[in-house]
């Protein structure tokens, strides 16, 4: 557990967070690895985890008839998964490891429970999630604009 606490504390996502909180969070954490091509999760499944990537890369994908579209890739020091934050807690897309990927998996129910017990912890987590969600929203808007299209 001491190793996991250190890994959680040193992950950029938790930079600056009090030891008291990272120790609490580490109680919901476990080490996981995904081989290249292995799915981290599938669209529609319960969003019962989120992942702090330590190494490797993960593609966020949406399956369409006869093709799979990659919307975004995320890599080392980034996070995968936000659907665990809001009901109905189901993944909105697929996530697939593009290469050997090591991550910390966070038990969502465990973490939500701790945030309910201590709203300050919840606020600390939200302060870290919101900028990422906003950046991804902005990035999605930019994608929709199709800035490299013929009319750009």
């Amino acid at each position: 557990m001491e190793g996991l606490e250190r890994i959680v504390k040193e992950h950029p996502f938790f930079a600056g967070m009090k030891d008291e909180y990272t120790n609490l969070i580490a109680g919901c954490a476990k080490n996981v690895r995904f081989e290249a091509g292995q799915f981290v999760f599938h669209e529609g499944e319960p969003a019962d985890q989120f992942y702090l990537l330590r190494s490797g890369r993960v593609a966020l994908q949406i399956s369409a008839p006869e093709r799979v579209l990659t919307i975004q890739t995320v890599g080392e020091s980034e996070i995968v998964g936000a659907s665990w934050l809001v009901p109905p807690y189901r993944w909105g897309m697929d996530a697939k490891a593009l290469e050997l990927t090591r991550a910390i998996s966070m038990d969502a129910a465990c973490l939500r429970g701790k945030c309910e017990d201590d709203h300050s912890l919840g606020y600390e987590l939200m302060k870290r999630f919101m900028p990422i969600l906003i950046q991804r929203l902005q990035a999605s808007r930019l994608q929709i604009l199709d800035v490299y299209g013929a009319h750009s």
Partner: peptide
């Protein structure tokens, strides 16, 4: 290097250049 969108045969980054 990144591309805005891709199918499965691309193993590079996907996402807008600002990322």
């Amino acid at each position: 290097v990144t591309v805005d969108t891709s199918t499965e045969d691309w193993y590079g980054n996907v996402g807008v250049v600002t990322t």
